[in-house]
Design a protein around this nucleic acid. Sequence first.
DNA 1: CGGAATCCATGACGATACTG
DNA 2: CAGTATCGTCATGGATTCCG
Lengths: 120, 120
Amino acid sequence: MTLIDDQNNSPCKDNCPCMDYCPLGSALSLIGGKWKIPILCALFQDGTTRFNELKRKIRGITNTMLASSLKELEEEGLISREQFMEMPLRVEYSLTDDCRDLMPILNQLAHWGAQVHITK
Amino acid sequence: MTLIDDQNNSPCKDNCPCMDYCPLGSALSLIGGKWKIPILCALFQDGTTRFNELKRKIRGITNTMLASSLKELEEEGLISREQFMEMPLRVEYSLTDDCRDLMPILNQLAHWGAQVHITK
DNA sequence: CGGAATCCATGACGATACTG
DNA sequence: CAGTATCGTCATGGATTCCG
């Protein structure tokens, strides 16, 4: 079972590096891959967004990668998909509450990343 | 230039998803790959550790991957390497201060990961 | 002991074309 | 408009062997 150590701020205890299940690795895998962070950032900044709108904002992404990344993020519970039965078809994506909880943490990570990059 | 938005807790602003440089992507790339988190966790929990000791603790890692991961982490400034001119050779690895600053953030990420996994 | 060198398998990712 | 299908490429990681 997973024990997270709050006493010493260790990311994980008794489960990393040697245990089967690591909640940190699990969390990182959810946002891994080349396009998930840009997608989450776009949805966070602009709110509910349609497929082709996302494709325009995220420069360089292809149909294939946007579609597969969105599908994974939805399966992981980080974004929600709403389809409107209109013609032409309209599909809107937005962040879930779980994902919104994640954003402040990613913000801290970004700050840390900016600092170590400077001092490097 | 990189602007991190503190007002709304967005991981990044004006630089993600469409800008060249993203401090969040940069930070994530530093700890990316299959073995970096286990290595950092091992060093955090047990402090200064030798090469073969790390190899024993991190189950499943090979010489190649441990060596290359350690080298990358050192180049990134997350760990420090000290070599003692003895026979047999002794090399000790430990976390840098920069990396220790990172640990509480990873701890939060682990907590978040544990929660979303439960509710999923 | 602490690696480096080499080769190989796999999966992520990209490009293009096509569809309901 | 919002995707899927197919195929090619390349980076990541694994296995093994060898070296100072």
